[in-house]
Design a protein around this nucleic acid. Structure first.
Lengths: 175, 175
DNA sequence: GTCTATAATTTGATAGAC
DNA sequence: GTCTATCAAATTATAGAC
């Protein structure tokens, strides 16, 4: 986030950090307002409801995540897995959850708008993996890779030890 | 839960269902009270604070889960993985989250008492897996198995399709 | 042990001034 | 676009009657 990010951007960034740490019900409009340095009524001006806000956060998270992954078709299967695992490892190193997991574990309890956005993230990540997978034969199952990384990040953060993530993720090398 | 379960048992059962569906911040003492048919002040009589209640729920979840798994030393590695996967699949079939994941993704945001109880669940499950693993050589890494099942359950519930769980879990057969 | 009542705070959301 | 002010409801938790 650049220094002259718009207020909308700064709200999304604050909400992202809060939602990753605490889930859908774990933060308030006033929390976000305080983080950004405005009042909660101003947050409502940009995002009328909490469902609007969190769905927008998830949409941006997906876009940014896919941008960081880059073009899958230029990668081998092993390189794609390696790159995806790298992004998850960075989260583990900062003891941050994946937003997909933070919202996805309570999928039945969040507004439909949010649930659809979370499901789209998982869907797009598997599409990205499959795009790389086509190039050199079906070396792995994309849903298996994603499940392993989501589980590894959760357990790593729970224990507070990125070594747990590394131990689990290393199994991806010998699949 | 039997028909003549104590009030404490019924509170724990209601809180378990709520916490699995919505996470730590997604339910209230009044929700639990309404589920059980009492008043919120009575819930506080049995469990003074929310941290007390949720930690007790997690402790019982661990105990019940390990009881359902049974004696690990009588199982081969493959049988142990199969049995553990079966319990996770039952949750997926009912679109229920694992309480470990529901509370673990927000590990940094729950009271320490709760976080420790959640971490103990993961720890004991890996110990159980390792107990079976000793009998016939190190066939698998217990943290890899647990991470895969936690991720598979989350993604399966997110999509609302137990077939997702089965697809991911089938990778455990050919490890 | 369960209740009524309530305290003290927080929640998502809105009205209207500037 | 941001603010003050406010609403109606919900939150965790406690005091005290029964």
């Amino acid at each position: 986030m650049s220094a002259d990010a718009t207020i909308g951007d700064r709200i999304l960034a604050a909400a992202l950090a809060r939602a990753r740490a605490s889930g859908y019900d774990g933060f308030s409009f006033r929390d976000i307002a305080a983080d950004v340095g405005i009042k909660s009524a101003s947050v409502h001006y940009h995002f009328p409801t909490k469902a609007d806000l969190v769905a927008a956060v998830m949409d941006r998270y997906r876009t940014d995540f896919l941008a960081a992954l880059g073009d899958a078709s230029r990668l081998t299967s092993a390189e794609a897995v390696e790159r995806l695992a790298g992004l998850f490892r960075a989260a583990a190193a900062h003891e941050q959850a994946c937003l997909c997991a933070a919202l996805g574990v309570t999928a039945s309890a969040v507004p439909d708008q949010v649930r659809r956005s979370v499901a789209a993230f998982a869907e797009h990540l598997m599409i990205w993996l499959d795009a790389a997978n086509k190039e050199d034969g079906a070396k792995f199952n994309s849903s298996v890779v994603l499940a392993l990384l989501e589980g590894a990040l959760m357990l790593s953060n729970l224990k507070g030890d990125v070594g747990i993530f590394d131990e689990i993720a290393s199994s991806l090398h010998t699949k």
